[in-house]
């Protein structure tokens, strides 16, 4: 279980997270939606320990990653995979080395097992014969899929996805959605997904939360999201410019 308690985070005078609380249960898929710049990525980075909150705590099972020893932090990182918005592949390494990186640092697998695991993970994201290529030789969508393969390679219990389907074509988006559902069904993986893609959210989510101006303003199942009277959620789901979420039109 991942538990976030009363997280506050500011960058200079800009308050990004103002008392965020959430709990994600084992094998659950939580989708966090919200307008751009509302702190969704910062929240994910706080959960994985890349951003230190001003106050509050993040519990990954029994480890409070906001104040734990480096060995505990290493243990927590073994349990959590992170899919970056822009893939964040290592430019100087081949695709094989990228996917194998976590297997070498976080597991004690032998080279043969690593080779098999890398191939299997790349197949799961529909990539074949790319092992020897460099990230610069791949398209944006392919890089994204390699990023997902790298995050799932060492079989973490929790995977955090930062906009996993952004920049992918509709068919590939659906393949990624089915991969997330497959990981949940067969490996009991718990997922937190930040996305704007409501079609994907409805398909994969057990629960949808909405973050607005640093606060969680909605928490409900997909069908509750569809029927909610919360004006912010309705405006966001409908993708309308009319409503309480202010969008400046300069044309």
């Amino acid at each position: 279980m991942i538990k976030v308690e009363n997280i506050h985070k500011s960058f200079g005078f800009k308050r990004v997270l103002c008392g965020v609380n959430l709990e994600v249960y084992d094998s659950e898929t939580l989708v966090i939606v919200g307008s751009s710049g509302m702190g969704k990525s910062v929240l994910l980075k706080t959960i994985v320990g890349l951003v230190k909150p001003d106050t509050g705590s993040v519990l990954i099972e029994d480890i409070n990653i906001t104040k734990c020893s480096s060995s505990d932090l290493h243990l927590a990182r073994k349990r959590v995979g992170y899919v970056f918005q822009e893939a964040a592949l290592f430019d100087s390494l081949s695709i094989f080395e990228n996917v194998a990186f976590g297997l070498r640092t976080l597991t004690s697998l032998k080279e043969d097992e690593i080779k098999q695991r890398v191939r299997r993970c790349l197949e799961m994201v529909c990539l074949n014969n790319v092992e020897s290529l460099r990230p610069s030789e791949l398209s944006g969508g392919m890089k994204k899929r390699v990023g997902i393969a790298r995050a799932i390679a060492y079989k973490p219990r929790y995977i955090l996805y930062d906009e996993p389907t952004a920049g992918l074509d509709p068919v590939m988006s659906d393949i990624i959605n089915e991969l997330i559902m497959y990981l949940k069904k067969h490996l009991k993986v718990t997922s937190i997904i930040v996305t704007h893609d409501m079609k994907s959210a409805y398909k994969i989510a057990d629960r949808i939360m909405m973050l607005h101006e640093g606060k969680m303003i909605f928490d409900g199942r997909p069908e509750e999201t569809r029927q909610t009277k919360n004006e912010y959620v309705r405006q966001f789901v409908e993708g309308s410019t009319r409503g309480p979420i202010v969008a400046d039109k300069n044309f």
């Binding site: 822009e86 592949l89 640092t105 995050a151």
Partner: peptide
């Protein structure tokens, strides 16, 4: 610097390095 801008340093952290 390029690695920092492209989140590669953060990726290293998440991969236990």
């Amino acid at each position: 610097g390029t690695m920092k801008i492209n989140d590669q340093l953060d990726a290293l952290y998440t991969l236990g390095t």
